[in-house]
Write a protein that binds this DNA or RNA. Structure first.
Lengths: 350, 350
DNA sequence: ATTAGCACTCTACGCACCAGAGTGCCAACA
DNA sequence: TGTTGGCACTCTGGTGCGTAGAGTGCTAAT
């Protein structure tokens, strides 16, 4: 995009004004609010040009201009300067994300809630991707005949468990044998290298009748696989209703309808993550604006996520969904700060 | 309330019409839709009377009437007849609530989701009140130095666990001793009879240095207490936005705002439950209409819950929050059927 | 107790109208 | 070539007005 300096300034000013007033901005009010050294007529020419480039558009003939998706994109990519948070704001966030919780999950939920509170938008976090973490412990506890609990401790300091059904005849001792064998052979293996076959070979040595053994091993395998399934935490959906951008009930409905399908949102975040990884994006933020988002009903939204790290190889995402008419510079630094605080607190768990 | 038969019919008809059309109903349309053997003028007299009794009201002078909270209440208490679900509808519900899940919690979530789908409203369920269930097993597993997992199996077939911090120096063997002592002495005790003191006496015999022991016991106690904390599952909030009753953005915002504070809603359900228990209500449904609900923003809603049973002494609530302009007879039987199915499936867990 | 009739009330809707903000374009100017 | 003042044109949003329609309460008659 070859824009001369003044056109950049004009676009910058239009985005700023529109974000803060929610009114289409015209050449005259642009002059009034900013110190342009040229006349409104000149700006009108510039604006016509920007419109031609698809960076701004007008709702109707005699209205001012609003940024297009492409305009916001340009703004985010090359125009805006990140705004540092005030010490006060930082303190507020630090206070809210406290480390007195016992599990990483609670910490993440905490951070998600805080992010929604501070931005005023919907926030979300993905649970850590545990594929690369390895098994540190695995115990199978008999609960009652036919039922057992598989408990797994992973290298990332995460504890997972799952109730499973086992054959009725198996006794405590047999289960312990199986449990021991699996643990002995699979400890240290990354989750994504554990397959049904590895689990079955791990359980070989035990003197438990074949079909019974097989079922337990299968259940253990299923428990392990479930441990690295992704969860998503969404927070503050209702806040969208307070934004003028969603004052039309139809839009609000579509938006919240889509967000209610958390599995779908999780899938989308995953896609974004994979895409970013593929193109080797060095940027730590993933930003999707308006129509760039393929989820239904999010045309007027922007989707911004960052990556947090539980360990070097285990990470997840945290971010917000807000109106595309948002203060990007501010929101991005809010996410960034929450992410950093989250990273810091997470160290206590690993 | 001494209403003569025709007045009852009139109120019944007004509620029916208003629920289905969402328009204030006038004397004339009442004659058209129903087979009253009197003229509209007579109905007008009756309606004036009903209004005088506070059962119906008019939005403005020259509009028809709509039922007041009191009118709905009368309708629900003595006028309506419960509508049996069609075999088709029953089948649909039975299909959705399947028992292939491994944990009660998943079953409850399942039922909640189904209820929201079938009614089209917000549904909710409380986790089972486990105070009356007793401890069947308690194990403390070392995870790593300073960290352990308390696993509890309760009589209701529920498994709970909690990660706790323990003194760093404690070794596996010591933990097992403590764990064994607690289990030996507390097995069979209802959760609400377990106090910090009982836990501490249970752990007495073990040869573990006093202050260390004390900390572990405290954590175990905290884990047990956490096990009987109540959770609430809310589902389908976004559906409210599709209802004409909440087409005003302000109302929708207030409603969803309140619902987003799930702890507050849980507290309210609890209150309702306690109140019902106190007055020895034999009715299996708790119904709150409009202003009877003390939660903010739910003035235009009705809140209906039923009680499900996991065991004789362990129960919880499941129900819906919908517009007070709802088909009570239908919704109540939907809740009833879901509850029954839930009860049936729950037997497999106990 | 019921009914027909009638005057009255209030809302919702369509229509016309105007002020205001903004645009594009043209001709003049540096 | 880039910039500017001027001007005609366009579109929205608010306001005021008049009317159709639905409903009511009241009265007098049955």
């Amino acid at each position: 995009m070859q824009l001369d300096n003044r056109k950049k300034e004009v676009l910058h000013a239009i985005v700023d004004d529109y974000v803060s007033t929610n009114e289409p901005v015209g050449s005259k009010s642009l002059i009034e609010r900013h110190n342009f050294s040229v006349s409104s007529a000149t700006l009108r020419n510039d604006m016509a040009e920007l419109e031609h480039l698809g960076l701004i558009e007008k709702p109707h003939t005699s209205a001012g201009r609003i940024p297009s998706d492409k305009g916001y994109r340009e703004y985010v990519n090359s125009l805006m300067t990140i705004e540092e948070l005030s010490p006060r704001e930082k303190l507020e966030i630090e206070k809210r994300i406290d480390s007195s919780v016992d599990e990483v999950t609670d910490l993440i939920k905490n951070a998600t809630y805080t992010l929604s509170e501070t931005t005023g938008f919907v926030s979300l976090a993905m649970s850590p991707r545990l594929k690369k973490s390895y098994l540190k412990q695995l115990k199978i506890l008999m609960i009652e005949p036919g039922k057992a609990l598989v408990v797994m401790v992973l290298s990332a300091g995460v504890v997972k468990d799952k109730v499973v059904r086992i054959p009725n005849f198996l006794n405590d001792e047999q289960i312990m044998k199986i449990s021991g064998a699996i643990e002995k052979n699979l400890t240290g293996k990354p989750l994504d290298e554990i397959t049904l076959v590895t689990v079955e070979t791990a359980g070989k040595g035990t003197e438990v009748p074949e079909p019974l053994l097989k079922q337990v091993l299968y259940e253990a395998y299923a428990a392990i696989k479930q441990a690295d399934e992704l969860n998503i935490y969404l927070e503050g959906e209702h806040r969208m209703l307070s934004l003028p951008d969603f004052s039309s009930l139809g839009r609000a409905r579509d938006l919240l309808g889509t967000l209610s399908d958390s599995g779908m949102v999780a899938g989308y975040v995953n896609e974004m993550e994979n895409a970013a990884r593929e193109e080797g994006s060095d940027d730590s933020f993933m930003i999707r604006i308006g129509q760039e988002i393929t989820l239904e009903g999010l045309d007027d939204c922007s989707f911004i996520t960052a990556t947090y790290n539980l360990t070097d190889s285990v990470s997840g995402n945290i971010g917000v969904i807000g109106p595309k008419r948002m203060l990007y510079s501010k929101v991005i630094s809010q996410i960034d700060f929450v992410k950093k605080k989250l990273n810091k607190e997470m160290q206590k768990f690993t």
